[in-house]
Amino acid sequence: MSFGLHEVSVRFGPRMALDRVSLTVDPGEVTVVVGGDGAGKSSALAALVGLLRPETGRVSRPPKSDLGYVPASAGLYVDLSVEENIAFVASAYGVPASQRDARADTLLERMGLTSARRRLAGALSGGMQRKLAVVLALLSEPRLLVLDEPTTGIDPLSRVEIWRLLSTTAASGVAIVVATTYVNEAARGTSAVLLSDARVLTAGAPEDILATVPGTLRTCPRRPEGPVSAWRRGSAWRVWSDQDVTTPTCERVEPDFEDAVVIAELAQELER
């Protein structure tokens, strides 16, 4: 059974937090929700887990006992130790003590937190806190796992480890929704939903999104003269046009996900 949002709108006073947003995730899949700050990622996840009531639209999710959620704030008890946080979550979800210890050992080991077991959660670094939050969310073996920016503020090695853990978790049949501001992480999901200004800009499998990028993308050593859509990538410039054009000093390139996100926004602006 798939979970997700169907045409969900959420309003905070006069401001739309979500405008007819849809996203689905099937068991065994990872849906990555990408977008800048204030795009509506957290609102989408909050609506999915039931923390926000949609004004219109439909939400489908498993019962709470099958739901794991990591909020953007990590949601840890900072005045409890790592072990005490684990004990609380395990008892809240009714995980038997025998299974709890084995699962916690494995997850802590994978996240490199074994030596921090007795430390207060509040005394851990920001990155370690986020890793602990992922451990807690996985402890009850949920059917739907929802993570709000689990990799923000985490060192690159740990980010890789978190994504590896999420992939193996998905492989065991769990449906996973991850929000991230790191555009390149979208390629790690089975599907991606790109949010901008409370709306879905584009959605689909990462390769489909890349294959359907409109117009032409070129890389140029300098910013071309005149009114063009251009942005810096490393030492060169990316130039996009919705027409098929060629320039002598520029070279045509296949867009990666980062380019696709920028182009999707530019294309939408052009439509307006």
Binding site: M1, A47, G50, L51, L52, R53, P54, E55, T56, G57, R58, V59, S60, R61, P62, P63, K64, S65
Partner: peptide
């Protein structure tokens, strides 16, 4: 606490619409 959580935890699955 939970504006949109109306179903109890023992229900098989949950679908909500306003």
């Amino acid at each position: 606490l939970a504006p949109d959580v109306r179903a109890a935890h023992d229900e098989p699955a949950e679908e909500t619409s306003p």
